[in-house]
Amino acid sequence: MRMRTLKRLGTIATTAVGAMLILASMRQDTFHVERSARIAAPPEWVFQQINDLQRMKYWNPYEQKDAGLTGRFGPTTRGLGASYSFDSDEVATGRMTIVGSKPLRQVTLRLDFEKPFASTVTTEYTLTPDRGGTKVTWTMEGPANFVHKLMETAFVLDPLIGRDLDRGLSNLKVASESY
């Protein structure tokens, strides 16, 4: 009787793991998370907060997640080619580089992660004038490797990443409105 119960539990567990692996393999090969906020500041002020990695350091939600995070700026901190390397046991290790900068309209960054696993993600900030202020849309997208797909099968990552983007937009709002 006891052996039969263990066998059934083993079969159920194996079937569940197999189903999860199959579902993960069927997921999209890319991910996309997007959040927006209205900021009561002109696009000029908001753009300066985003296009300058030294200023971004103060409102970036990932900087606030780990007090032990260490960072190093590249030779340029503003505009096209500006870069910032970061190392954290709690967040990630990698480098961000501004790869697109359209004054008052858009800033695009390439995030090259080394840890917890190697990946490259694109994050973009789009600014639109909005009723005397600025609407900022922050997107994050990139390839979804099998580990990412497996995590997305077990947990919905959009709310997890989206929570960070919302926090960052809230911080950006405070930084821009008090600029």
Rank of each mutant, 00 (worst) to 15 (best):
residue 2 R to M: 04
residue 7 K to Y: 06
residue 10 G to M: 05
residue 11 T to P: 00
residue 13 A to Q: 03
residue 15 T to C: 08
residue 21 L to V: 12
residue 23 L to I: 10
residue 25 S to L: 10
residue 27 R to K: 14
residue 28 Q to R: 08
residue 29 D to Y: 03
residue 32 H to R: 12
residue 37 A to F: 13
residue 38 R to Y: 12
residue 42 P to H: 15
residue 45 W to V: 14
residue 47 F to E: 13
residue 49 Q to D: 12
residue 50 I to T: 14
residue 55 R to A: 13
residue 56 M to A: 12
residue 58 Y to I: 04
residue 60 N to Y: 10
residue 64 Q to L: 12
residue 65 K to M: 12
residue 65 K to A: 14
residue 73 F to G: 00
residue 75 P to T: 05
residue 81 G to R: 01
residue 85 S to I: 00
residue 86 F to W: 13
residue 87 D to G: 07
residue 88 S to Q: 03
residue 90 E to G: 00
residue 90 E to N: 06
residue 91 V to L: 01
residue 91 V to T: 02
residue 93 T to N: 06
residue 95 R to E: 00
residue 95 R to V: 00
residue 97 T to W: 04
residue 99 V to T: 09
residue 99 V to Y: 00
residue 102 K to V: 14
residue 107 V to H: 03
residue 114 E to Q: 11
residue 121 V to H: 05
residue 124 E to S: 06
residue 131 R to Q: 13
residue 138 W to M: 06
residue 140 M to G: 01
residue 141 E to C: 04
residue 141 E to K: 07
residue 142 G to L: 10
residue 143 P to R: 05
residue 145 N to M: 05
residue 148 H to V: 11
residue 149 K to C: 06
residue 154 A to P: 02
residue 154 A to C: 07
residue 157 L to S: 06
residue 158 D to G: 04
residue 160 L to E: 03
residue 162 G to P: 05
residue 164 D to I: 04
residue 166 D to A: 08
residue 168 G to Q: 09
residue 175 A to T: 13
residue 177 E to T: 14
residue 177 E to S: 14
